[in-house]
Design a protein around this nucleic acid. Structure first.
Length: 268
DNA sequence: TTTTTATGGTCAC
DNA sequence: TGACCCTAAAAAT
């Protein structure tokens, strides 16, 4: 269930659980047999994320580290297992096991071995990631300024900004009352910077809370207990929290968009 | 029990 | 634009 915050959180957690340990790797399902066999017993050195892409760095018997690139897609999922006796799901693509932890991966769009150079090339295709130190708001501004597509489609385009998904896009546009069909390049810089800054804040909060929360105005010391519904502004709702009108569901950028036609009227 | 849905993405036309 | 890929849980029957 991944937008960017999930992937960055996984990079952090997995490095904590597996870091600097020799990892026993297998592919119960069989579709990653070759990769698992190649890296079996290698040392998990570190993990990093760019947008929704997750990378592990393994060191073994070769001069250069070798990476595993994982993209969860819509259905991909990791499960942390308690004991080695746990039987993996029949669709478990990859099991990584150390003396202290077991991680099972199922349903990823992508799970492949690659070099650092290939990983760099993969990341070079992506837009700036608000969660990364090298995330650059100017690049976001520039990429948006060249697109005529609706802003609601642009926010899902990983070449424009990396890490946002369907929930963050709906709530970002709602937060600033932006008409979702506004051409991306028509938005003024002030608005684009606001979208970026709020993305940074929401994604960081998402990593910390390990869930999407878009309703908190500033960082609280203690996270309130929120039910899923209460944590979101408009995504998945039937009525606008501001005016009470029915929320419009439509398909924009191939995904279901939730928006309020009465409130979201800004076009710059 | 079957069908639908989901926080994603690629490819062909 | 639509077909398709991947999996699991919720919703519908």
């Amino acid at each position: 269930m991944p937008e960017g915050h999930t992937i960055h959180r996984m990079a952090r957690d997995h490095a904590k659980w597996l870091g600097n340990q020799s990892v026993t790797m297998s592919s119960p399902q069989g579709r990653f047999d070759e990769g698992a066999a190649r890296l079996n017993g290698w040392v998990f050195r570190r993990a990093f994320a760019h947008g929704k892409h997750l990378f592990y760095v393994f060191e073994g018997n070769q001069a250069q580290p070798v990476l595993v690139h994982i993209h969860l897609g819509l259905f991909g999922r990791f499960r942390k297992r308690k004991a080695a006796e746990d039987v993996p799901s029949p669709n478990c693509r990859l099991r990584m096991q150390t003396d202290t932890a077991i991680l099972d991966l199922s349903g990823p769009t992508c799970c492949e071995v690659m070099t650092q150079e290939q990983a760099d090339a993969k990341c070079a295709q992506l837009g700036p990631d608000p969660l990364r130190d090298d995330g650059d708001v100017d690049l976001f501004v520039q990429r948006l300024s060249r697109r005529r597509i609706p802003i609601a489609a642009a926010l899902l385009d990983q070449k424009v900004i990396a890490g946002l998904g369907n929930i963050y896009r709906a709530d970002l546009l709602y937060a600033y009352r932006i008409d979702p069909l506004t051409p991306a390049r028509d938005l003024n810089r002030e608005t684009v910077e606001a979208l970026w800054n709020t993305s940074v804040w929401w994604l960081e909060l998402g990593v910390r809370a390990n869930r999407i929360i878009t309703v908190l105005p500033e960082s609280p010391k203690r996270l309130p207990r929120l039910k899923r519904r209460e944590a979101l502004l408009i995504y998945g709702k039937s009525h606008c929290p501001e005016c009470g009108d029915q929320v419009q569901k439509s398909q924009v950028g191939n995904r279901t968009l939730y928006a309020c036609q009465r409130c979201q009227v800004r076009t710059q």
